[in-house]
Design a binder for these strands. Sequence first.
RNA 1: GGUCAUAUAGCUCAGCGGUAGAGCACUACGUUGACAUCGUAGGGGUCACAGGUUCGAUCCCUGUUGUGACCACCA
Length: 769
Amino acid sequence: MTSQILEKTYNPSQFEKEVYEATLDKFYPNANSDKTFTILMPPPNVTGSLHIGHALNYTIQDILVRYYRQKGYDTLWQPGMDHAGIATQMVVSRELEAQDVDVKSLSRDELIKKIWEWKAKSGGRIFEQQKALGCSVPWDYSRFTMDEGFSKAVIEAFVTLYKDGLIFRAKKLVNWDTKFRTAISDLEVVNKEEKGMLWHINYQIEGSDDFITIATTRPETMFGDTAIAVHPEDERYKHLVGKRAKIPYTNRLIEIIADEHADMEKGTGCVKITPAHDYDDFAVGKRHNLEMITVLDENGHMTCDENVPEFVRGLYLKKARKILLEKLKEDGFLVNEEEIVHTVPYGDRSGTVIEPRLTDQWFVDTKPLAKQAIEVVENDEVRFFPEKWKNTYFDWMRNIEPWCISRQIIWGHQIPAWYAPNGEIFVERTEEEAVAEATKKGFTREQLRRETDVLDTWFSSGLWSFATLGWPETNDRLKRYYPTSTLVTGFDIIFFWVSRMMMMGLYFMKQPPFKDIYIHALVRDDKGQKMSKSKGNVIDPLEIKGEFGADALRFSLAFLSVPGRDIKLGKDQIKIARNFITKIWNAARFLQMKGVTFEKKLTDIKLSTKLTHWIVAKLMSFRNEIDQNMVEYRFDYATRNIQFFLRDLFCDFFVEAMKFQDDQETKDVAGAVFAEFLRIANPFMPFVTDHLAKELGVCDTLVLAQGVDEKQIQTSKKYEDEIDKFIELVHAIRAEKQANGLESAKYQQLMDELNSYSTELSSIVRVTN
RNA sequence: GGUCAUAUAGCUCAGCGGUAGAGCACUACGUUGACAUCGUAGGGGUCACAGGUUCGAUCCCUGUUGUGACCACCA
């Protein structure tokens, strides 16, 4: 059964799709095996489209899953998608506005309906892109964080945490996004360093013509001031402590207090205290029992009440600041302006300045949850690869703050809380249960008001490791696949996702959600710059696939995955991988032309020549190296192993030697070794290897192909060493010939030595002509 | 301000307490029964700098400098 000779050029687009579809049914778990290997696919945003970072993330996971699947493990690569609350609502609102829909006039239900429609339309796109990369995923297993079962899990988790006292509602300062009119968590705030102004403003001392000068970057919040603080040891101002000062225009009197928060070196040494609009001031306010006055509304406009003078009421804070400063200057209150550099908080999605704002919000008390999540990493129950990320994780976990989980948006899981008119809160799984509880306290159903806030997206993502497996119901899948094996993700979401999954997994499942955490690098362009649309340096994975093939992209990404180093990816790098794959392709063609049949297994061939012993021994150590490197997540080494074996050993020596030693045994070994090579390389480059396996008549697919048993193969270390020395000699002869020509005495001497090995093999020197 | 990385050939990066490596680029040669998307050979490095430990340091330690990332805070 000699197969047809392959086409002369390697053209991946001709067979990639076909290969993928032919193997789709092999990607499902196989419950017959007693060993499991599970990976949770980090759920991409429903708004997302695939970028090169995803490609890296999926490539690594796919290599792992395919590798363990071949080894006979029962593998589950759990796919799914994330509803991405704020991001999605933002995208859909923007689209609706572009169609002239007045989003603000839509009711909650109408807007939710629109978002679901949009999700149905665009949500599938990313799956298609994942397929194009070769992700070996059981697609029917997909979960969505907003699907019915998952929502049930979210409610269950929330109610349980609440009843266990780990979720609470409180009036606290939170990061307020004035564009989306919602609270966001600390992690969603990005601080940027900027040039700004420090304005020195005079407040008149009560019953005197003297002034106290404060310095501020936020003059518009002065109407919310409830004190002025000076340092207790500041001799300049000691005499003022206890006196009162007048806020310009509103003339409200505030006390001058002594507090160490005031820094003698900064500004004037006097700092206005605005507890409702600044985190530090809030703390000072608590210490001195100060009143908290809010002067900014949810849109970032000045409030319209007696605390704010008429001339700025209702104005957007930046406009209010401008007008106020002009007036302060005019009236002589503004005595100095100083240019400074300071950091300003921005919303990661909205890009607007974040305002600390005093509101009622829901929080997770993370401290107790973090304790165990720290311990399991400390005692190596859960390991980070590379290990250094452990420090990042510890740093954050040890200093963790309560997590604000309520969002004033509509796309998400609505918090299952009902309020009675007196403010009493009923947190229950269903409205019926809430009503039942409320009735006991004498309230009626009509009196209850449902909480409109929804949960932070990461609250639901935090449950991903077990909610995707059917929790809260206990079932076989949950028992079998939890805890999962390896989590593959980027360092940028260690806090957002990894830490939350650890806390939630440990709390609800009593076991950490995964054993290993592999943190991969950031993909940059070939100059080391972050890829971004505005810079125009983005590499589109699908475009690369079209140009070089998905295997070349996968191979490059794995090749460049050196632990602890960012990936600098340029087209050159991918071209190199493509060229290497072409080499594999051509090796296959050569074997075909030589009449190799690929029928015999290695175990069926009795090795009798030095050459065949040697290549088989090399194959076995190659395979062992791959195994070792996979355990250590060294994809960079593994791909180098593949390259070295195929090019330096198989092609450069074995195939060349085969041109002079082409007995049946050599041909059989060539076929068997190449087939095994294809199998080993399959997880890294599934398309071309599967295609070749089929074309050469090795097998239909390598997806579940098991390797030959090493114990049944006998090779001799003696032959291996002998040929290695022989190869060294060949190199020496070639170099000598290049340097001094055929007539040199040294050349003749080396040639004699070479011929003593084997006259057949020594012909290989002719390769250089 | 704190923390963690990182510095090796022109470029991208491996590596190791004992003679410095690969790929790309470069130079020369080559179409020999797969492959010019290739092969053969070659040139090219004070391993950031300064100290220390050691018989011996590119490697371990300390410091300096450069680069990057993260965290915190700044009226």
